[in-house]
Design a protein around this nucleic acid. Structure first.
Lengths: 171, 171
DNA sequence: ATCGTTCCATACGGTGGAGTATGGTGGAGA
DNA sequence: TCTCCACCATACTCCACCGTATGGAACGAT
């Protein structure tokens, strides 16, 4: 529901209807709507954290690791849709700290990769922020239907350009 | 109101209270809430379109024009806050086409500047998309309180890095 | 002075969604 | 067999909205 219609769609009654039960049942399992939302978000965070380790932690070469980060945008569409939906609700009291943690973790990973390549601390930090901003901006353009289709050649060409621009071949 | 709390805060009753009038008065001036929202958004769009012409249209050198685009992020804070709030409501039927037009116009400007520098059509298009994505991503990080303060040295250093990375000194 | 128009207030109805109060049901144990 | 409890349904209250119906007050024109 979050991926398709945002956290606003995590509504007790509509969800209960969709599941073939009623509100009464829901409020036996959860104290309130916020609790459901909190557990859902926490569940997704764990999932995302594991993904980060599995997909990027295993890649030895830092350049390949960074390239893999961009390539992942085209895959794992559900996770990206959820994240994109959460970005649209950055002002929500439960979402804001979550986004802060998730983005922080990811940027640290990226920064570490740039540091491995050989950049200094400040330079690596800037590069990580710019890299992640490019990713966030792409998600926003997708929300506005102004990003190339993920399965198109246009997308591939753009990704190649981004990788070439942001990841230095040699230092 | 949009800048501070998003279009959701553009509510008839709360606005009327804030203005010291009542709903009855509002519904004499506007047929419904959507009309107010539409006119507000249109008004902002005109303002933004004019800004684009005044600030970027006048700069002759394409490189300076692009640099000015980034520097503007630190100034005109209200316009950026409004735009950022609108990005959070990209799924709204009135906001979506607006964002499409505004982002389209801005990216065309940026693409034209890259074309002037000497890049080919496809390359200029990619560079414009990446440049605008970096801007959008920065806005998102700002919403999450993970962007450096606009008046800090950290912000200046980051901007310098972004400009150096995205705008080529020579071709 | 009267009348119509403009502008605004009061009061009401309707809707969607959160949360509560309370009654019912089926199945595991004493 | 009886009882208890986990689990679920029904039926409300409350609240924040949008929108409407209607009754004025100020004011210019005839």
């Amino acid at each position: 529901m979050i991926a398709e219609r945002g956290i606003r769609a995590v509504a007790v009654e509509s969800l209960a209807r969709r599941m073939g039960v009623t509100k009464g049942s829901f409020y036996w399992h959860f104290p309130n709507r916020n609790a459901l939302l909190e557990q859902s978000l926490l569940r997704w965070e764990k999932h995302d954290e594991a993904n980060l380790q599995v997909f990027l932690g295993a890649i030895a070469d830092p350049r390949d690791r960074l390239r893999s980060f961009f390539r992942r945008t085209g895959r794992e569409k559900l996770t990206h849709k959820v994240y994109s939906a959460l970005c649209s609700a950055a002002d929500h009291p439960l979402v804001e700290p979550l986004l802060e943690r998730v983005a922080g973790r990811r940027m640290q990973h990226i920064e570490a990769a740039f540091a491995e390549i050989g950049f200094g601390s400040a330079e690596a930090s800037h590069r990580a922020r710019l890299t992640y901003s490019a990713y966030l901006g792409f998600l926003q353009l997708q929300r506005q239907h102004q990003a190339p289709n993920l399965s198109s050649g246009e997308f591939e060409a753009y990704m190649t350009h981004v990788i070439a621009t942001l990841i230095p071949g040699k230092i």
